[in-house]
Design a protein around this nucleic acid. Structure first.
Lengths: 340, 340
DNA sequence: GCAAGTAATGGTCACGTGACCATTTATGCA
DNA sequence: TGCATAAATGGTCACGTGACCATTACTTGC
């Protein structure tokens, strides 16, 4: 594999000059430049980012850790971020924590070993690897949280305005006449300490309802758990008349459960969910969703990280909230017997 | 950031000994080992993979280029591969070619600059970057194709037994009584030179049918294109009675189009598709699918690459084919008027 | 034709590690 | 105790680059 010295030798110039043909071509005389460029061409030379990174201290790599690659939300995020960073000459390393803080730590170690310059982190639930993250930050990795943040986190974040969305969703259901609204599932300080489930009871209060304790069950944000919870809730003596799914993944489980119980949406139960996943408009009825501006958020997050890496971290932690969009398609209707 | 020399100094040993505490602890006396480990602990030392890679020549990174991260097939692939390589201490770099060979080349350059040790490549359509790939290979990157391969490719591949699946699918539809079967879409030497569309006409021949030229239209493998094509096909004077969607993404477009035309599945038209995506069992009716063993293939591919990287490439190019599985759920039925 | 200034080009070294070989220390046995 | 041998430990250098400073070639104006 040819290196810059080989190029220099072939072009009959010094390594410094050869390097400048790539980095600052305007410093060279046209003739010299052409000679070096020809040598580069002939040898098929490509700069070794590795050696460069070692010398520069900063690498041209960014790490992205998501909760679950399979979720279309994260897939879209990966895609956007990958495009954005590549356009600036950076490579993207991807890892998947499965929302597990043990696995998260392993992946953080790997990122750290590879010396990523920036880290976009959808942090796992459970005991946070805060100490380790702070250490990484002290060593120069710029860390930005996405989609979720530690309460009192010292890092910036880019995320959906979860509170606004939950309030809007609950208001929507309330205005349709629902009084028995359940979220899938409830807030839990260690299992699922996410913003959406945290503010859900507050949103109920805001529209004059109080959370029903029997509906409040903490579950992991998976299709299976949502399926099981939906079955349980709808079999209660006083089942909810509206379900508010906090993730698109859960919505699939809820939808399956409703169908299996032989209930109709929206006649028997209304269903509202986060995430405008493609399938939500294909099922019968198409689902009412709260769409997240994934591309916008991904692009913003990537830019924040790259700017911090190249120009130094901003004085104040970045805190960006993006609004969701409620799309009504027909899976929510007044509860049975309200208007009739 | 502490390095191995700092550790050595603190532990009062030579750098070589310090290094051995990590790499070959059994060579050290327990007392020495403990001393070094304590120093590592206290300093929070982590080996710099960058410097190591520079010296070792080989990096601990693997590149994965997919056609479209959003497709659940690729998402699942990324996830499996990421897990597999991380378990062996490697990091995964991800890129997305959008099936475009120009973008593919850009990403290949990036991977090459980062000196990935191995490359898993779902190659784009269009003029292949074969020359560049061969150059990468010559420089020591082990290249394995996944999901698709260049005809006459010098690289190994891991993929679905597309031919077997297409034959089985066509045979299934034929046995139901269908004579007018269309694939979404047709083979095209540069636009979509994929195995599935290539063997589709052969599969028709094998069951005594001949391909209908009016059905044969080359389209990109996108939801929108499949949507448009399905509309066109079903508006023909002699529309197909069965649609064979070659990807799960296209199936969504086809499903949408059928519904918009007010036709029923399977009464008016049967729909069979590749990929057992989650939504296919949620819609009405649930779709008949050909499931790919994504995890199995991803794991196999990752292992092949890691083995080749660590123990040298195999003498013969690896060629692995995995069988698909036909899952019948009710979206295919005898065509109108055949059995009645 | 020459000094002064600018435009090009060159030389050297450190980044942190792992490969390789060299040296010191412990152990076993006569 | 002394010596051979094995077990531990140590020293040095190159990987390819970029930062930094040094030097040479060219122009300009008088």
């Amino acid at each position: 594999m040819p290196n810059i010295l080989d190029v220099a030798k072939r072009a009959g110039v010094s390594p410094t000059t050869a390097k400048r043909a790539i980095q600052e071509p305007r410093l060279l005389r046209p003739a010299t430049l052409a000679r070096v460029q020809r040598a580069i061409e002939e040898l098929g030379y490509e700069p070794d980012q590795l050696a460069g990174s070692l010398r520069r201290v900063r690498t041209r790599t960014v790490g992205l850790m998501v909760g679950n690659i399979i979720e279309p939300f994260f897939a879209a995020l990966i895609r956007t971020v990958a495009h954005e960073v590549r356009a600036r000459g950076y490579a993207l390393m991807v890892a998947d924590s499965e929302y597990d803080s043990g696995l998260e730590l392993e992946n953080l170690r790997m990122f750290s070993g590879q010396r990523v310059s920036g880290l976009l982190l959808r942090s796992a639930f459970g005991s946070p690897n805060l100490e380790y993250l702070k250490q990484m930050q002290k060593r120069g990795t710029y860390i930005l949280q996405i989609d979720h943040f530690y309460p009192g986190s010292p890092f910036g974040y880019v995320m959906l305005d979860a509170q606004g969305c939950v309030f809007e969703g609950v208001r929507y259901l309330r205005d349709l006449g629902h009084c028995r609204i359940a979220s899938l599932g409830a807030y839990h300080p260690t299992l699922t300490p996410d913003e959406r489930s945290r503010v859900f009871p507050l949103a109920l209060n805001a529209v004059g309802l109080s959370p029903n304790p029997t509906y409040q069950r903490a579950i992991p944000r998976s299709e299976e758990a949502a399926y099981a919870l939906t079955l349980e809730l709808l079999r209660l003596d006083e089942p909810p008349t509206a379900l508010f799914s906090l993730t698109g993944t859960e919505a699939a489980g809820a939808f399956r459960a409703v169908r299996e119980l032989g209930l109709r949406i929206p006649e028997d139960v209304s269903l509202l969910t986060f995430d405008n996943y493609s399938w939500t408009s294909l099922v019968t009825p198409p689902l009412d969703v709260i769409e997240q501006p994934v591309e916008t958020m991904g692009r913003a997050a990537a830019r924040v990280v790259l700017a911090a890496v190249e120009e130094g971290p901003p004085p104040e932690p970045v805190r960006l909230l993006f609004p969701g969009r409620l799309i009504k398609r027909g899976s929510c209707a007044p509860p049975r017997g309200v208007w009739s």
